[in-house]
Write a protein that binds this DNA or RNA. Structure first.
Length: 459
DNA sequence: ATGTTC
């Protein structure tokens, strides 16, 4: 190991990890060339492809590497939260109608196709412009871009570096939710922990919000797969033996490294466009179902932030500002108060951090901190994190009616695939409250509000 | 996460 491994966790969460390979993977990552300070993991960490999910690793630009496994298969998987002007009691009687309408009008599930069929030219524009493409075509407003991390566009995207197969998979999946842990959820603000930050973010108790958790769909998957294959082929050129082939990577200053970053940026832009379209459709569905106008409904974007990405960022290392390639795989950016990357409206309190829970549980809104900036490369956790494999979860769900169990917990869940619900049972995940408590106490982000799920659509 | 191994 070139640097230490550091896991932010609690005794309870660590015990729950059992034989999980995550901690070993934290150590494996610490072998990579150019890694800076430490290989980190957040309390929601668990086994992933090469790098642990919930992992953070930063590499210096000259000697360092970029690794597709350090980003994950779902490039720019992330969350966006919309804050409505509605109070929970106003929509109690319309909740089922809303969930049904969302389920019927938002394509979800494995291989789902969207309403849009992109021309080759439009798809290239999506890949370079990101969420701006959606806004230019009438799906949302300039204000939405203001509240999206990096305004919903990553620089350096080059569609020439994206394979024909990835382009093919992407052309009809825009505006689709996907499968697995992805969801669109109607939630109510249940508890406020930080009144000042909540007020700045426009959150109040009893308020209805909508959380969208989705990513870059088949296109991002294909980009990851293509570049893993290419990097594994040249793995010997790294010059040192790697503890795991799944750590396949390329020097940041190599052709392969630059090509991956250019293709990854395309997938990131696709994901931001996707969440922008999902949000626009959600606004239309709320308006139609409730018979209300946009003014009355609110439904402004509170924030959109990704949790699977590699980004070139300037961060303090040993008291000096250094340009680094920060890999966040199942980890969320959590930039501090005053940082220029934040929308001016939020600069006083820090970046909104959106933490999706497991199915039907709800979400947290946190705020980024100065300690995250100096300690964890401006990063915090990304969710509850699996504690059970998908296959184990399916086994544990046999003979049960998951929708009924969710209904008994007071959450309406509609899903296109029965298998997904079985994989996503709450007991397959860690305790979200415990995960958030760890990052809060460690100072990596501070609790602002907890939202409880009311209705949820899934793949 | 993923047209769940073209």
């Amino acid at each position: 190991m070139r640097v230490p491994g550091i896991i932010y966790t609690s005794e309870k969460l660590m015990r729950g990890m059992g034989e999980d390979e995550g901690p070993r993977q934290v150590a494996n990552v610490a072998h990579l060339p150019g890694i800076v300070t430490a290989s980190l993991a957040m309390p929601d960490m668990h086994w992933g492809y090469g790098f642990p999910i919930g992992g953070v690793a930063a590499f210096e630009m000259e000697e360092g590497v970029v690794s597709p496994g350090g980003v994950g298969y779902d490039i720019n998987c992330g969350c966006r939260l919309m804050a409505t002007r509605l109070q929970a009691e106003e929509i109690r009687d319309r909740l089922q109608a809303l969930v049904t309408a969302l389920f019927q009008n938002i394509p979800s599930g494995l291989g789902s196709r969207g309403v849009l069929k992109l021309s080759a030219k439009d798809e290239r524009q999506v890949l370079t412009e990101g969420a701006l493409w959606a806004v230019r075509h009438g799906y949302g407003t300039e204000g939405d871009l203001e509240m999206t991390e990096d305004r919903g566009v990553m620089a350096g995207a080059d569609p020439e570096k994206v394979s024909d197969r990835a382009l093919e998979r992407g052309k009809d999946q825009l505006g689709t939710l996907g499968s697995g842990n992805h969801f669109l959820e109607i939630e109510v603000v249940e508890e406020i922990f930080d009144r000042e930050a909540a007020a700045v973010f426009g959150l109040e108790s009893g308020q209805i919000c909508v959380m969208i958790h989705s990513g870059s769909r088949g296109l991002g998957y294909q980009v990851c797969d293509d570049y893993l294959a290419r990097m594994v082929k040249h793995i010997h050129e790294i010059g040192i033996p790697l503890p795991d082939r799944q750590l396949a990577c390329a020097p940041l200053n190599s052709g392969r490294g630059r090509d991956y970053l250019a293709a990854m940026a395309c997938a990131a832009n696709y994901a931001w466009t996707n969440r922008q379209l999902l949000m626009h459709r959600t606004r239309e569905i709320f308006e139609k179902t409730l018979g209300m106008g946009p003014r009355e409904l609110g439904m402004g974007l509170l924030y959109d932030v990704c949790h699977n990405i590699a980004k070139i960022e300037t961060l303090p290392v040993g008291g000096k500002d250094v340009r680094l390639c920060v890999h966040r795989k199942g980890a969320t950016r959590a930039f501090p108060p005053g940082h220029t990357a934040l929308p001016p409206a939020y600069r006083k309190v820090g970046q909104p951090v959106l933490i999706p829970g497991d199915m039907g549980t709800g979400s947290y809104v946190l705020a980024g901190t100065q300690s995250a900036f100096t300690e964890s490369f401006g990063s915090t956790c990304h969710g509850a994190g699996r504690v059970m494999s998908r296959t184990r979860a399916v086994k544990a769900s046999r003979g049960r009616s998951i929708p009924k169990e969710m209904a008994d917990r007071g959450v309406i869940v509609m899903a296109s695939g029965k298998g997904t619900l079985m994989e996503e049972i709450p007991e397959a995940y860690k305790d979200l409250d415990e995960v958030v408590e760890v990052v809060h106490r460690a100072g990596l982000s501070k609790k602002v509000a907890r939202l409880r799920a009311l209705g949820c659509i899934k793949g």
